[in-house]
Design a binder for these strands. Structure first.
Lengths: 257, 257
DNA sequence: ATAAACCCTCACGTTACGTGAGGGTCAAGG
DNA sequence: CCTTGACCCTCACGTAACGTGAGGGTTTAT
């Protein structure tokens, strides 16, 4: 087993290779995001290939909109896997490309309307702004969900194992029953006591499940998002967004009393 | 002439319509980038449709990577034209989409190599980083080139004035002569000494001109771009992309010796 | 052995807002 | 008529991710 003399790079070399500034490397060292794996006697930072790979991950994740804090979290997660991460990154990139194409066509429409009519289509102006804003915000918010989805499966599986089977089955039955009732009564006035009773049961069940999830708001958030994206659309008795909306209205009506 | 009661929006409405935060509107007002066209008696900011259009431009330009300062400059240029700007924005978006696709394939290659060989292709890791860095920096640097075309004319005019007329004429004659010769000999082998002689003269002339441009790399870059887009296509004796390509090949052949 | 080219550690500056604090305005309701 | 809730205002300080020197060692090529 030869001491395979790995290639070592100084800040300047890393900078030249990757295009990041030296100051950035200093910064990433300061915040312990990318401490060089070694130092020379004189105190020079020395990076190896693994460091470069980590840097690549950092840059990509930052490019996708994560804050350095979030990147820190992601990379330090025990189950972090570079290959899985790369796959996710590609998926996100494709999604982003789609978004850009959407924006491009929105701008195209705006321009066309202007040239056809000589007037500005103000609603298109607003929606163009909204599209762009959405795309700018998307970075780091919706993004983290991409990284949570896979994890989500796993977490749910864990929770599943840690919970007695009868409890799970019971809960599922409760849910399906409740969802059916809600769906049959979605036209009730939010102030109707029957609606409030339904909301009560709903909140209770949610509480129970929340208890399983622990105090992890991310998990809840992910589930929400997955709903919004229709991940569970095929499951007939899973609550839909309309169901959620109804319950929210009822809860809101109660609060405002 | 009825006082056509234009629609007016307060900060909250603009925010709801476009997705920007109220604070951002305040900020854009503070720096005089987007002062509302009116105020209510109580001091409420009141925006009209034209303001919304300006906001759309601001958001798009920012999205493309301009700083607020740059956006300020652009929008206040006397020759600024929203429609032209929209066209440019679409082109930039398409370019950016191409870049994202490139990055996506780079990541794909990296991943594939890893999965085929079980090893990381370090050079790909570095180049992936470089791609991403390039794309992140591109914002606002190369970007301004798209918008510089008009400015370019002006700068060239300035330089023209600051340089004695005979020198300019001499240079122009040198260029036309050289370009004709190059065009007649573009099928020469890059290693041919005659080709190299041409390349030498070319490089020398380029040096001379570079000297006029001072140390402003942006200017040089702009010229490159304008060439690529065929701005000077009508000028018969202006070098074409093929001419450039030929010289580059010759230079490359020389270096690799 | 002496520049030239790198590298180090402070430490303050910058951009584009976020986030309250403290306080007017205005339509609906009691 | 007055209050309450939803908006709006103006400061003014906070923040993220570096940029940009200042002041001072290190390495290497001549």
């Amino acid at each position: 087993m030869a001491v395979s003399r790995e290639r070592l790079y100084r800040v300047g070399e890393v900078a030249a290779l990757t295009g990041v500034s030296i100051r950035t490397l200093h910064h990433y060292d300061e915040i312990e995001l990318l401490p060089p794996s070694g130092r020379s006697e004189a105190g020079y930072r020395l990076y190896n290939d693994a460091d470069l790979l980590r840097l690549q991950q950092i840059l990509t994740l930052r490019f996708l909109g994560f804050s350095l804090d979030q990147v820190c979290d992601l990379l330090s997660r025990p189950d972090f896997d570079v290959e899985a991460s790369l796959r996710i990154q590609r998926r996100v990139l494709r999604d982003r490309i789609d978004e850009l194409e959407r924006i491009e066509t929105v701008l195209g429409e705006l321009l066309e309307r202007r040239q056809m009519t000589g007037e500005w289509a103000w609603e298109l102006v607003a929606s163009a702004s909204a599209s762009i804003q959405a795309e700018m915000k998307l970075r780091g918010e919706q993004m983290s969900e991409y990284y949570t989805r896979d994890e989500l499966q796993q977490r749910l599986a864990e929770i599943g194992k840690a919970t007695p089977a009868e409890v799970i089955q019971q809960t599922e039955e409760d849910w399906t029953a409740l969802v059916r009732e809600v769906r049959a009564n979605r036209d009730l006035d939010p102030t109707d006591p029957r609606a409030q009773a339904l909301a009560d049961r709903w909140n209770e069940l949610t509480q129970d499940m929340a208890h399983w999830f622990g105090d992890d708001p991310k998990l809840a958030n992910s589930i929400q998002r997955n709903y919004a994206e229709g991940v569970y659309a095929e499951i007939a008795d899973a609550p839909t967004m309309e169901d959620f909306a109804f319950i929210q209205k009822v809860n809101a009506a109660r609060k405002s009393e």
